[in-house]
Design a protein around this nucleic acid. Structure first.
Lengths: 195, 195
DNA sequence: TTTGCAACTTGACACAGTGTCAATTGACAC
DNA sequence: GTGTCAATTGACACTGTGTCAAGTTGCAAA
C-alpha cells in the first residue's frame, strides 16, 4: 500500500534528521537509522538504494521542514543589489546552523561515495544560483566594483559562503552565528560593492 | 643498522609523495606505497605506526624538499604591512598546488582518523601564524581597516586562504593559479587595508 | 475463503582497507 | 657460533556498506 510506504519513508527521514542532529552528522550508520525508525536495516534499502541517496533525501526533507523557499523571500524582495547581497548572507548565515549536521554527513560521505559527491555538488550549485542572483543585482545597479566580472565575483562569493568556511569560523574560531553574518556582510560589501 | 633504517624510511616517504602526486592523493593505500618502495606492506608499519603518521611525515618531507622556509623569506622581508600581506598570499598561492595532492590525502583521512585530524590541525595552525603575522604588520602600520580587530581579521584571512577554498576556486571554478593569487590579493586588500 | 501481492524481517555473506600477530629468513657484528 | 635487527610471509580481526535468499505478516480482491 502506497500510503503505508510513504509513512515508512517519512519515518526513516525523520529518524535520519534526528540522529544527525544528535551526533553532529558523524558516525550515523544505516543500522542506526533503521533502529531509530523501528525497522530492519534491510528495509531502509527498500526505500533508498544507497546511503548517499538517503542522505540526499534527508537534506531535501529538511529543506521542506525548514521552509527554505519562504526564507529566501526577503532576499528576493530586496530593492537594491547591495541590500539583496546583505539579505542573502543573512539568510544563509541563519540557515547553515540548522542544516549543518545533515550537510556535514553528506560532506563526509563525499570522500568514499561518488553519488554523495554528486548530490552535494547539486546542492551547492543551487546555493551558487543565489550568489549569482545577488551579484547580478549588484551589477544591474552599477554597484559591482569595477575589477570584478559577474562570473568571477560569483565564484568568489560562493566560495566565501561555503559550509566549510562557516564551519571553520564558528567551530574552530568560535564565532557566534550572529558574528559570522555580520563579518561576512562586511567582507562581501567591502569586496564587491563599488565605493 | 640505523643508516639502512633511515634509507628505507626515506624510500617510503619518496614513494608516498610520488604516488600522491600521481593519483591526486585519492585512493593511495598502504600496500601501494609499500609496493612503490619495493617493500612489504608490513615493513611500512615498522617505520610508521599508522597511515595518519605516514601521511603527516610525508607532508613534512615535502616541506623540506620544497624548501618551505626559504619560500617564506620574501613575505618576511616586506617593509610594509600591505606588502607583507600581498607577498604572503603570493607565497601561499604558489605553494598550495605543490603540496595539494599530499594535503588532500591528509584532508581525506581526517574523517575516519583522529590522528590525521590532529596532524592537519597542527599544519593549519602553522599557516595561521603566517596570517597573523601579516595582519599584525598591517595593524602596526595603522593600516588595518578600523572595524577589524587583529584577532578577527586573522580568523577571516586564515579562512579565506584555506586549502578548501583554493580547491574550490581552482578545481571547481577553473581559475588558474595566477588568478587565484591576484583575486585573493584583491579581496584581502579591499577587506583588510584601510583606505 | 482462498489466492496473491507488497512491505518487511532474518540471517548470512562478499568486499575493501587498516591494523595486528607469529613464525621465519638473511645479513652483519662481535 | 650467537645475538640482534630489518624485513618477509601469510593469516586474521574489525568495520560498515551493500546484496541475496527464504520466510513472515497483513490487507485486498476474487
Amino acid at each position: 500500500m502506497s500510503s503505508h510506504d510513504a509513512n515508512t519513508r517519512t519515518r526513516i527521514l525523520d529518524a535520519s534528521v534526528r540522529l544527525m542532529a544528535d551526533r553532529g552528522g558523524k558516525g550515523v550508520r544505516m543500522g542506526d537509522i533503521a533502529k531509530a525508525a523501528n525497522i530492519s536495516r534491510q528495509a531502509v534499502y527498500l526505500h533508498f538504494t544507497s546511503r548517499a541517496e538517503l542522505l540526499e533525501a534527508t537534506t531535501r526533507h529538511l529543506d521542506r521542514q525548514l521552509n527554505l523557499e519562504h526564507r529566501l523571500e526577503p532576499s528576493r524582495a530586496a530593492t537594491t543589489g547591495a541590500d539583496r547581497l546583505a539579505r542573502y548572507i543573512e539568510f544563509w548565515g541563519n540557515y547553515i546552523p540548522e542544516i549543518y549536521p545533515v550537510a556535514k554527513a553528506l560532506l563526509l560521505a563525499q570522500d568514499t561515495d561518488e553519488a554523495a559527491a554528486t548530490a552535494w555538488r547539486e546542492r551547492m550549485q543551487a546555493m551558487r544560483d543565489g550568489c549569482r542572483a545577488a551579484i547580478e543585482a549588484l551589477a544591474a545597479d552599477g554597484d559591482l566594483a569595477p575589477q570584478w566580472t559577474a562570473e568571477r565575483a560569483t565564484d568568489m562569493l560562493w566560495t566565501l559562503l561555503s559550509v566549510r568556511n562557516w564551519e571553520q569560523l564558528t567551530q574552530d574560531c568560535g564565532w557566534p552565528a550572529s558574528q559570522y553574518i555580520q563579518w561576512m556582510q562586511t567582507v562581501a560589501h567591502r569586496t564587491f560593492v563599488a565605493n
